[in-house]
């Protein structure tokens, strides 16, 4: 979705780039300085922010809040209903769903955040350098990005995740590979976005000025241009965090998600679908957890957009 928005907007140079950079700077700094105040003006951002804070707090407190070992099965106590022992009941292996949802959340959020961060970390320099240097570098770089963007839907994810299965996977590295795959597939959008902003900024006076005073080109690109294209990236990344959670769930459904027994919302929801009729509770809690977090990131992203991007502002 965001990708489409961008790709239309990227040709809509008039609208996207007409805002003077000073105003943009002011807007960005407003967020950093008076961030909370600014955010609280947007009802959606406030609500989303509260939900996200809740998610992060719960994720951090998971070891305290959890009541059971999330991977310890007990077949004598399988498919148990909600009780004071098991707040959300138990799954088909007799594991405590409440604890699994907590640990799964910790993991899901960590992976989404890491994947988005990774996507930004490779996409932003790629895009900015491409836009800044222009010419042949830009042409080659952008054709690469366009080629990646032409993979429709989930196909790029499917290919990369299947590909990465070859590598030795254990514990942390397993998650790292998922992060890599999700982040890499996010990269082209980021690069596009960053490049669009960089193209405009590169022609601005201040960049010229820094040339004149002899700053190194690379550092100019990163130091001067980056802050000016941050706002659309923030919005995009926030909404993307929610989308990542859904992609992880879809990959789990297709058998490419987290290997068991690691708690994972998508995988747990996927496994629970066999019991949907008799024991709907198993599916409901991880399902709601996914909805809640995606909603939180979307709300917050919407709110941020109101503040940062006047074009789609809701005023």
């Amino acid at each position: 979705m965001e990708r489409q928005l961008r790709s239309v907007r990227r040709h809509d140079t008039a609208a996207a780039d007409v805002t003077p950079w000073k105003i943009r700077m002011r807007r960005v700094s407003a967020v950093s300085r008076e961030g909370l105040e600014e955010l609280s003006k947007s009802r959606t951002a406030t609500l989303g922010g509260i939900m996200i804070v809740f998610l992060f707090v719960v994720a951090l407190l998971t070891p305290v809040l959890a009541t059971h070992d999330p991977i310890k099965p007990d077949y004598r106590d399988r498919l148990a209903p909600i009780s004071s022992e098991h707040y959300f009941g138990t799954d088909k292996f007799g594991r405590d769903i409440y604890s699994r949802v907590l640990y799964g959340g910790q993991r899901t959020i960590a992976i989404s955040v890491a994947a988005v961060a990774f996507g930004l970390a490779i996409g932003i320099p790629f895009g900015i350098l491409s836009g800044y240097f222009g010419g042949r570098v830009d042409a080659v770089g952008m054709r690469f990005v366009d080629g990646l963007l032409a993979f429709p839907g989930l196909l790029l994810y499917l290919l990369i995740v299947t590909l990465s299965r070859e590598w030795k996977l254990e514990g942390f590295w397993n998650d790292a590979i998922l992060v890599f795959a999700l982040g890499f597939a996010f990269m082209p959008e980021v690069a596009r976005l960053a490049r669009g902003a960089a193209l405009v900024e590169a022609r601005k006076e201040y960049v010229e000025a820094s040339h004149v005073i002899g700053e190194h080109r690379f550092s100019v690109a990163m130091r001067q241009i980056l802050p000016n294209c941050v706002s659309p990236l923030i919005v995009n990344a926030t909404v993307r965090l929610g989308y990542m959670i859904l992609i992880i769930a879809a990959l789990s459904f297709l058998g490419l998600g987290t290997p068991p027994p690691t708690p994972d919302w998508g995988a747990d929801l996927n496994v629970a679908r066999d019991h949907m009729e008799q024991h709907p509770m198993i599916a409901i809690f991880p399902g709601l957890a996914i909805c809640f977090s995606v909603l939180a990131f979307n709300l917050f992203g919407d709110g941020l957009r109101d503040i940062l991007d006047p074009r789609t502002a809701e005023r």
Binding site: M1, R3, G153, L155, L158, F253
Partner: peptide
């Protein structure tokens, strides 16, 4: 216009 782009994205996005 964006629905058009969505259509493109759906071509590989309906696996599930």
């Amino acid at each position: 216009t964006i629905s058009g782009l969505q259509l493109a994205n759906l071509l590989g996005g309906t696996v599930v």
